[in-house]
């Protein structure tokens, strides 16, 4: 834009001075506005750090109140969990046994089935099957867990009672199986992604040696995708450990120190739900137990996450 005004004439002969437009003038606040916007966006991104910090802060300060009343050794080694009774015991082992038993059942279902589905979809399935199955698995993973809990209680438990007449109405077995089915989509879809990322040249090399599809899948593709498959398993484990509603609905909520899945039991998560549903006053020791239980759960998932991180680093193959 020229800075000198150009002079033109209209039909009437009057001179019109057209002003230079300031549309492209230097905006003095332009740099400042950019900085402000960038800080706002940074704050939005920093919400995640704030959330983590808040979780750690809340869990530790509230558990601190709990551990002032309950010795740490009782928490770890007591074999009873009766925080709501007059004769209160706080042995987290009882809840841990429920969590571990139900997770073990879930993983026994989810890991073999999830892996088979992943291998099938990545190495065997025709294009059409894969295009239909992947969204379907995603839908299955999107079903609310309370629905799975209802399904375990109303459908699967009576079904299992046909084969195991002794099975009580609430049990860890049926909750664990349904939990496993819930986890299949996560395991299958992440493992499949890992296998698909293995370069085609490796498969072609294997086929050129005369290997069948199954041999290629098990001996070439899976070892090459170990890091991704391992982190899919770890994600499955932390899902199982943190799952709440299926267990709250179908496993009963009686604390029970057992590793027998055909018994009812309480887990860390279902205990938290049980206390939250009751009317314990805030600040009472019974109430503080849920934060101590939550801290235990958080530490467990943290260990699994770190393990997953380590596995990814340790077994990563670079092509």
């Amino acid at each position: 834009m020229s800075s000198t005004a150009s002079i033109a004439s209209t039909a009437e002969g009057l001179p019109i001075v057209s002003q230079p437009s300031d549309r492209l003038k230097k905006d003095v606040t332009r740099h400042f506005k950019e900085r402000v916007i960038e800080s706002i966006l940074f704050l939005a991104a920093f919400v995640s750090v704030f959330t983590t910090a808040a979780i750690v802060y809340i869990l530790i300060t509230e558990s601190w109140v709990f551990f002032q009343h309950v010795p740490f050794s009782d928490f770890l080694f007591d074999t009873q969990w009766t925080p709501l009774f007059d004769d209160a015991h706080y042995g987290i082992m009882v809840l841990l046994s429920g969590t571990l038993t139900s997770s073990a059942v879930a993983l026994l279902v989810a890991i073999p089935l999830g892996t088979i589905i992943a291998i099938y979809l990545s190495e065997f399935a025709p294009f059409v099957v894969r295009e239909v199955a992947k969204p379907f698995l995603e839908l299955l993973g999107g079903v609310p867990t309370i629905i799975y809990g209802y399904f375990a209680l109303v459908f699967l438990t009576p079904l299992l009672q046909h084969f195991l007449p002794e099975l009580p109405g609430f049990n860890l077995l049926s909750a664990g199986i349904v939990m496993g089915i819930m986890i299949i989509p996560y395991v299958a879809s992440l493992s499949e992604d890992a296998m698909r990322a293995v370069p085609m040249a490796l498969r072609e090399g294997s086929y050129a040696m005369g290997a069948t599809r199954l041999q290629t899948a098990l001996r070439v593709v899976m070892p090459a995708a170990t890091s991704g498959i391992a982190s899919a398993y770890i994600l499955g484990i932390s899902r199982a450990v943190g799952e709440t509603m299926i267990l709250a609905v179908a496993a009963g909520m009686q604390p029970n120190l057992t590793f027998n899945p055909t018994e009812p039991g309480a887990t860390i998560t279902s205990f938290i739900v049980q206390v939250a549903l009751g009317d314990l006053p805030h600040g009472s020791i019974g109430y503080q137990t849920i934060f101590a239980a939550g801290l235990t759960l958080m530490l467990m998932t943290l260990v699994f996450n770190l393990l997953g991180y380590y596995m990814r680093k340790r077994f990563r193959e670079v092509y």
Partner: peptide, 25 residues
């Protein structure tokens, strides 16, 4: 890096922990 690691980790935190966070906060 810290922000990215946090987002990855938060995706793996069990939902009931968010409930405890909300209760306290």
């Amino acid at each position: 890096d810290i922000i990215e690691i946090n987002i990855t980790n938060l995706a793996g935190v069990p939902s009931i922990i968010y409930g405890l966070l909300a209760l306290g906060l």
